[in-house]
Each structure stands twice: as C-alpha cells, then as structure tokens.
Computed example of a mutant assay.
Amino acid sequence: MDFLIETLIMIVGVVVGYCLLKVNEHKRILVASLNNKVQLIAVALIIFIMGINLGSMENFAHKMITMGLQSLVFAILPTLFSVIVVYIFSRLFIIKN
C-alpha cells in the first residue's frame, strides 16, 4: 500500500511539473523558489527525525561502528568492481594507436 501512495505522489509531482511548462516564466520561477524552500524544510525534517531515531537506539555507539563498517564495504566493493569492469572493457574495446 505504501508503494502505491509513493507512486501516486510521484505521478502527481510529474504532472504538476509538466503543467508548469505551460505557465509563464515569472510564475514558474516563483513556483521553483517555493519548491526549493519546501524541499529544504522536508530534508531538514527527515534528518531531524533520523537523529531522533538514532538517539533513541540502545548501544548507539556499537551500532554506529557496525553500520559504518557496512557502509564502507558497500561503498568500496561497487567502486572496486566498477573500476575492474571499466579496465577490462577499455582493454577489450578501445583501439590502440
């Protein structure tokens, strides 16, 4: 059910964005400015709520170390494999002079 609501919200946003193409430039700039402010407030609210959730965890320091190590692995592995794949494909498909 949540996926459906998120999808509908995204579709409404796309439709509103498309309708803004038909609006004059002055109104479009005002709406874009308002949109930027709303996004900033929403992101700040999300970060605040995440902080509350993290602060209310038991063993917060231990979990942060575990999550940090997992994040490091999830960052290094895709980067490493991307470099390897690009290296292999560049050796196979790039014509040398």
Results as ranks from 00 to 15, higher is better:
residue 95 I to R: 02
residue 74 F to G: 14
residue 81 F to I: 06
residue 42 A to G: 02
residue 76 I to H: 09
residue 32 A to D: 03
residue 89 F to S: 00
residue 24 N to F: 01
residue 36 N to M: 08
residue 57 M to V: 11
residue 43 V to C: 10
residue 10 M to P: 02
residue 13 G to F: 09
residue 12 V to P: 06
residue 34 L to P: 03
residue 70 Q to P: 10
residue 37 K to C: 12
residue 13 G to I: 10
residue 85 V to M: 06
residue 62 H to M: 11
residue 40 L to I: 15
residue 32 A to S: 07
residue 79 T to E: 10
residue 88 I to A: 04
residue 5 I to W: 09
residue 91 R to D: 10
residue 57 M to L: 11
residue 71 S to A: 15
residue 96 K to N: 09
residue 52 I to Y: 15
residue 44 A to D: 04
residue 12 V to G: 14
residue 38 V to K: 12
residue 27 K to M: 00
residue 97 N to I: 12
residue 74 F to P: 09
residue 21 L to R: 03
residue 91 R to L: 05
residue 19 C to T: 14
residue 25 E to I: 15
residue 54 L to V: 14
residue 40 L to R: 14
residue 17 G to K: 00
residue 19 C to I: 13
residue 63 K to C: 01
residue 40 L to A: 15
residue 47 I to Y: 02
residue 51 G to Q: 03
residue 27 K to G: 00
residue 30 L to H: 13
residue 14 V to M: 13
residue 31 V to D: 00
residue 84 I to N: 03
residue 14 V to D: 08
residue 65 I to L: 07
residue 70 Q to S: 14
residue 43 V to Y: 02
residue 46 I to A: 10
residue 33 S to G: 13
residue 81 F to D: 00
residue 70 Q to F: 15
residue 90 S to V: 09
residue 1 M to D: 10
residue 2 D to S: 13
residue 5 I to T: 11
residue 97 N to W: 12
residue 34 L to R: 12
residue 78 P to V: 04
residue 34 L to S: 12
residue 46 I to E: 06
residue 31 V to E: 01
residue 24 N to W: 03
residue 77 L to M: 06
residue 66 T to L: 14
residue 27 K to N: 00
residue 83 V to I: 13
residue 59 N to F: 07
residue 19 C to P: 00
residue 1 M to E: 10
residue 94 I to N: 07
residue 20 L to D: 03
residue 69 L to D: 13
residue 44 A to E: 05
residue 43 V to E: 08
residue 29 I to Q: 08
residue 84 I to C: 05
residue 80 L to V: 07
residue 55 G to K: 04
residue 14 V to T: 11
residue 25 E to H: 14
residue 82 S to F: 14
residue 68 G to I: 06
residue 34 L to E: 11
residue 76 I to S: 04
residue 47 I to H: 03
residue 62 H to G: 13
residue 43 V to F: 02
residue 90 S to L: 12
residue 49 I to D: 04
residue 8 L to E: 09
residue 45 L to N: 01
residue 45 L to G: 04
residue 35 N to S: 09
residue 4 L to C: 07
residue 85 V to P: 01
residue 79 T to C: 13
residue 61 A to W: 06
residue 47 I to D: 03
residue 83 V to K: 10
residue 40 L to V: 15
residue 40 L to T: 14
residue 75 A to D: 13
residue 50 M to Y: 08
residue 42 A to T: 02
residue 65 I to R: 02
residue 79 T to G: 11
residue 62 H to Q: 14
residue 59 N to W: 07
residue 83 V to W: 13
residue 94 I to R: 07
residue 17 G to F: 00
residue 83 V to Q: 09
residue 91 R to I: 08
residue 93 F to V: 07
residue 35 N to I: 04
residue 9 I to L: 14
residue 63 K to N: 03
residue 5 I to V: 11
residue 16 V to M: 08
residue 49 I to V: 07
residue 16 V to Y: 12
residue 58 E to L: 04
residue 61 A to G: 05
residue 67 M to G: 11
residue 76 I to Y: 10
residue 36 N to S: 05
residue 80 L to G: 03
residue 27 K to D: 00
residue 46 I to D: 02
residue 39 Q to E: 07
residue 53 N to C: 11
residue 8 L to S: 08
residue 64 M to V: 07
residue 65 I to K: 05
residue 15 V to I: 12
residue 73 V to L: 10
residue 51 G to N: 05
residue 73 V to D: 06
residue 3 F to V: 10
residue 68 G to F: 08
residue 47 I to S: 05
residue 88 I to W: 01
residue 30 L to W: 11
residue 2 D to E: 14
residue 11 I to M: 06
